[in-house]
């Protein structure tokens, strides 16, 4: 038994904590927009109430994971996502790479144009998804890009 943080519970607590932080910020912003009165509601009144509601709900959701963390400081390796679950085999890494590819498409789009950016993007996703044959990936990506071009530019008439 080694002492190591329980990643599952930390993530379970992290999401509502982030929501609480965000809603606190939103309340502060809404206060600045002007709450107004019931008779004359300002632009900030409605978002303030919603942000307060989000804060309370997120505070409710943070209780269970925090209690679990407090009760069990020791963790078996079994609950570590690196040892179990979908993170096995680099699931998180693949997801991060996919995000990179999507962002790259946005950055490349205006530089090298729709066709090349989409081709590269499709190739990269095939590779991340486990397609190891470059020829198959290339054939598929080319067909995909060409059909998208035909559909969006030819049929739908978008200026790309």
């Amino acid at each position: 038994m080694t002492r190591r943080p329980d990643w599952n519970q930390l993530a379970a607590a992290g999401v509502p904590l982030a929501l609480m932080g965000g809603s606190a910020w939103a309340m502060w912003q809404a206060w600045g927009y002007g709450i107004g009165s019931l008779r004359m509601p300002g632009p900030g009144g409605y978002p303030f109430v919603l942000a307060a509601g989000l804060f309370v709900a997120a505070a409710g959701a943070v209780v269970t994971p925090l209690v679990r963390i407090a009760r069990s400081p020791r963790q078996d390796a079994a609950t570590d996502p690196r040892a179990t679950g979908d993170a096995e085999g680099g699931g998180l890494t693949r997801a991060a790479m996919l995000v990179g590819v999507l962002l790259a498409w946005g950055l490349l789009f205006e530089v090298i144009g729709f066709v090349l950016a989409s081709l590269i993007c499709a190739l990269a996703i095939c590779w991340i998804g486990g397609q190891r044959s470059p020829i198959r990936a290339l054939v598929f990506s080319s067909v995909l890009t060409a059909s998208c071009y035909l559909l969006f530019v030819g049929v739908l008439g978008l200026p790309l």
């Binding site: 996919l98 590819v101 999507l102 498409w105 946005g106 729709f114 989409s118 993007c121 499709a122 190739l123 996703i125 095939c126 991340i128 998804g129 486990g130 397609q131 598929f140 990506s141 995909l144 890009t145 998208c148 969006f152 790309l160």
Partner: peptide, 16 residues
């Protein structure tokens, strides 16, 4: 149909 083909197809359609 393998997942990666679908994923790249869906990705391009979403981006576009």
């Amino acid at each position: 149909i393998p997942h990666h083909y679908l994923s790249s197809l869906i990705a391009i359609f979403i981006l576009l």
